[in-house]
Design a protein around this nucleic acid. Structure first.
Lengths: 181, 181
DNA sequence: ACCTGAACACCGTTCAAGT
DNA sequence: ACCTGAACACCGTTCAAGT
């Protein structure tokens, strides 16, 4: 790839990241192109469809969840590790439409190497859950597979209520639902 | 309103109900018009925008939740009444994109008399919650206002997993999160 | 009054012309 | 090789002509 092409690709990504975080799926390609200082054609040269560009955003966001899981794993208390995993992920999602799509869309979006990235998240996340199960800090039937589903539910609720902060209560209810008994 | 106009309006609603339940927000106005056997202009004569037509669908769906709440109120066991309210609502939502929008969109959609309809739902629903709280069957801080939020979360999760039936587990976790302690 | 569908606007996408 | 933006396609919406 030519140096200027690489630079343009990067400019598109930066612009898309910013506008997408602010405006969500609604951003127009032309707006992204203007903001990046390139023509629309250039955006399409690097990302064949709008969906492909969004997918690239989601891919980047996704890695952040893995970092959060790795950090949460360091927490001593088994239950606190689980609670932190959920809470930190939710905070990352809050106010960034890019993250929200990442959370709501994980099930349908596809990209090269998605399996590895899912596995990279699942590894620390399973260890956190398993430890909490063994310690009796969460229901014995809890599994990693519950995480995306529950996070999707919490995310879907982020614009609820006046301040939009009701998701904290939602999270609270979920966490209490994960406790044993 | 002229008799033929009224008939046309009804035909549009029937067509919209069917196609909207099947295909969700994606249905095209032209498709609805064809299916109803009228011109596009007629659809627009009765519903000024696509959003207005969708809102009308949601409004109809919404009343169903009130019926469910009234039926659930008849259940003797205070906890079962709460569980049934959630479960029946979720079943109604499942597989009908119209209901799903009703659930996901309650917070932003607006229509004439929405307050009364919300109140009509809130009345039996609060009685159910209050009774369960007094009986110690759910957390003492549970309120009617939690219902739309939680149902929105469950709905957002309806296409998860292979069969799309994982929402039952989600509901299970939520219900267990609602128990006292 | 109400119905109809050609025409317009908007936005995602393509591609011929340019460097 | 890569960039550009005029042109095309699609779909929501309008409105002049018809009954």
């Amino acid at each position: 790839m030519r140096a200027d092409a690489r630079r343009n690709r990067e400019k598109v990504l930066v612009a898309a990241r910013e506008l997408f975080a602010r405006d969500g799926e609604g951003v127009q390609i032309e707006e992204i192109a203007n903001h990046a200082g390139v023509g629309i054609g250039t955006v399409y040269r690097h990302f064949p469809t709008k969906g492909a560009l969004l997918t690239e955003m989601v891919r980047t966001r996704f890695q952040r969840f893995t970092e959060i899981a790795l950090a949460a794993e360091e927490i001593e208390d088994p239950y606190e590790a689980v609670a932190t995993l959920f809470t930190e992920s939710a905070i990352a999602v809050e106010g960034d439409a890019g993250f929200q799509l990442a959370m709501m869309g994980v099930e349908d979006l596809e990209w090269e190497g998605i399996e590895q990235e899912k596995a990279a998240f699942a590894a620390p996340a399973s260890r956190i859950i398993e430890r909490a199960v063994k310690a009796g800090a969460v229901r014995p039937d809890m599994s990693v597979d519950d995480i995306p589903m529950l996070m999707c539910g919490i995310t879907s609720t982020m614009y609820f209520g006046p301040g939009g902060g009701e998701w904290r209560r939602h999270l609270d209810l979920i966490l209490s639902g994960l406790r044993p008994n």
